[in-house]
Amino acid sequence: MNTPLIEAVLVVLREVLEFALLVGILLAAGAQAGARGRWLPAALLAGLAGAWGYMRSMGAISAWFDGVGYELVNAGLQILVYGLLLGVIGLLARYPGRAPGAFGWLAAVAIVSAITREGSEILLYLSAFEGRPQAVPDLLLGAVLGGGVGFSAGALLYYLLRGLPQRWAGWVTILLLALVGAGMWSQASALLIQADWLPAHAPLWDSSAVLPENSLPGQVLYALLGYEATPGPWQVALTAFALGAALLTATAGTWLRVHPHGDRDHD
């Protein structure tokens, strides 16, 4: 079995899937709202630069907060992306078909933050093979294969969303953003538990026999929902709260659109 090749495919696929699906959803959301994707090239370049800088600083960052800086910074990036997605959800629900200028900024910063985190993981993994030149060809091939599958999934999701009937497309996109945002909190809570900032408890269930995390469906669900086969109570509770807050934001945005002068009606 070609271990470096398989490992590279799985590692790169796992990380690329997360931001590729996010890019696909945000591009579809922008297209539905009449916003061009001019923000994407700059966001991708800034994200790659951030990933490189983050990877190079990983040793120093890991020493922060008594040795749990890596976990806390990653959790912070996940929570930041969630907050930005809440803003996007609110705008899409409040202004369907016409995205304000803030949409591009929110989407761009979300992409930069996601690529900074996921890209640094890929670069860190690849850098571990510097002393093994014989493994480099398999490593690069695996990275290309994993990246190709991940980006293809993002492109497929984009075209699926663009192909939906107009009456469904907006709400399906908002629901996917809400699920992705909840997945961010799932991953963030797991990191906070690792850092002992949240208490650790026994898992509520174990679904690894039905859906292993390292399977392709498991990887996709991890990218979309932060899927974990053995989640603890804090992870489940914060994920559910994040999903509820995202749906509440969408509901509030819709109410403001339908009742733009609702507050004045009570004067």
Rank of each mutant, 00 (worst) to 15 (best):
L164F: 07
S152I: 10
L145T: 12
S62M: 09
Y125L: 03
G104Y: 07
W168E: 11
F103L: 07
Q78A: 06
L91S: 05
G146H: 05
A155W: 12
T116C: 11
A93G: 13
A155Q: 05
R98G: 10
E130D: 15
P100C: 09
L77A: 06
V81I: 04
V149P: 09
A99K: 09
S120D: 09
I79N: 01
I79Y: 09
T173Q: 15
L80G: 02
L141N: 05
L141A: 14
L84W: 02
V112P: 00
R56P: 00
V81H: 04
G150Q: 00
A60M: 09
G150M: 01
R98E: 13
Q166K: 08
L48W: 14
Q78G: 02
L86F: 06
L86C: 11
A51Q: 04
F65K: 01
V172Q: 06
A102I: 12
L92M: 15
G83K: 07
A102Y: 15
G59L: 10
A102Q: 14
V136W: 00
T173A: 14
L156R: 05
Y125W: 07
E118Q: 04
L80C: 06
G101Y: 08
N74T: 00
I115P: 04
S113T: 13
A46V: 13
V149Q: 11
W105K: 11
A60S: 10
F103S: 02
Y158H: 07
A60Q: 10
G170N: 15
D66F: 04
I89Y: 07
A99V: 03
S127H: 11
G90E: 15
F129V: 04
M58C: 07
P165A: 07
L124S: 14
G131L: 14
L92R: 14
M55N: 15
L160P: 09
Y70S: 10
F103V: 05
W105R: 13
G119Y: 01
G154C: 05
W168A: 13
V68F: 05
E121W: 00
G69F: 05
V149H: 06
R132F: 14
L126Q: 08
P96C: 12
L72V: 02
S152Q: 08
L80H: 00
G87L: 05
V172M: 09
A102V: 11
V88F: 03
A75S: 08
A102G: 11
